[in-house]
Amino acid sequence: MPTSEIAGSHDLALRHQFVNQEQQRDASSMGMWLFLVTEVMFFGGMFTAYLIYRHANPAAFMAGSLALSVEYGAFNTVVLIGSSLTMALAVRCAQLGQRKALVGWLIGTILLGATFLGVKAVEYHEKWENHHVPGPTFNFDTAKEESTKDHPEAQASSKSVEMYFSLYFAMTGMHALHMIIGIGLMSVLTWMSWRGTFGRDYFAPIEYAGLYWHFVDLVWIYLFPLLYLIGRRHTF
């Protein structure tokens, strides 16, 4: 179904403060990129903490990492990369004015995002049951844990493994929060797309939501090896 009839003309989409479409496009894309810069700084604070503590306590980080499930992590990585693909396809459809396909790919992105969060929830739950959540109930004895007892290089005190898990929950938690915000954003955009708000002339919000989604994906691409794989380098 052609959407140009619904998707407004140039003038309608041009906001009053801009002189022309070009200025509007330049401004909004620059704004989006700057926003992503602030996001980099935001996660940067936690990555700094991670680097410092891992350097100070490599064994504890290895122990904590061994206790994570690589299967879940790898599965979620694939899911997120897949969602980046569906997102890219959604942007493409928006540019081509294909309304139904756009809605479809957006829903696909939402589903993959929800899958990721579902797996994350299962993982968090297992951590809770295993007393691997920091706090009064935390308990991690590297000499007794199934995952670490045969790894002499991953023997560390319970307290320093707790630090690893503090960072694990802070970093993946903030990442998950960004995913939830992303899914919320996608839901609104799906609704708007369904109503035909976007078309060949006006698809910037889809494009920027895509940038955001890819950014959140990228953060995970860093989190996965840093959190899940550090303990396993010599098993390959």
């Binding site: 903490a49 410092i52 503590y53 100070a56 306590n57 504890a60 920091p134 706090g135 009064p136 935390f138 307290k159 320093s160 707790e162 630090m163 503090s166 960072l167 929950f169 802070a170 938690g173």
Partner: peptide
């Protein structure tokens, strides 16, 4: 997070700095 969820990233007891 440290106050609410015991994520002790600055907690000296966990080796935090």
């Amino acid at each position: 997070f440290e106050r609410m969820f015991h994520l002790g990233i600055f907690d000296p007891a966990l080796g935090g700095d």
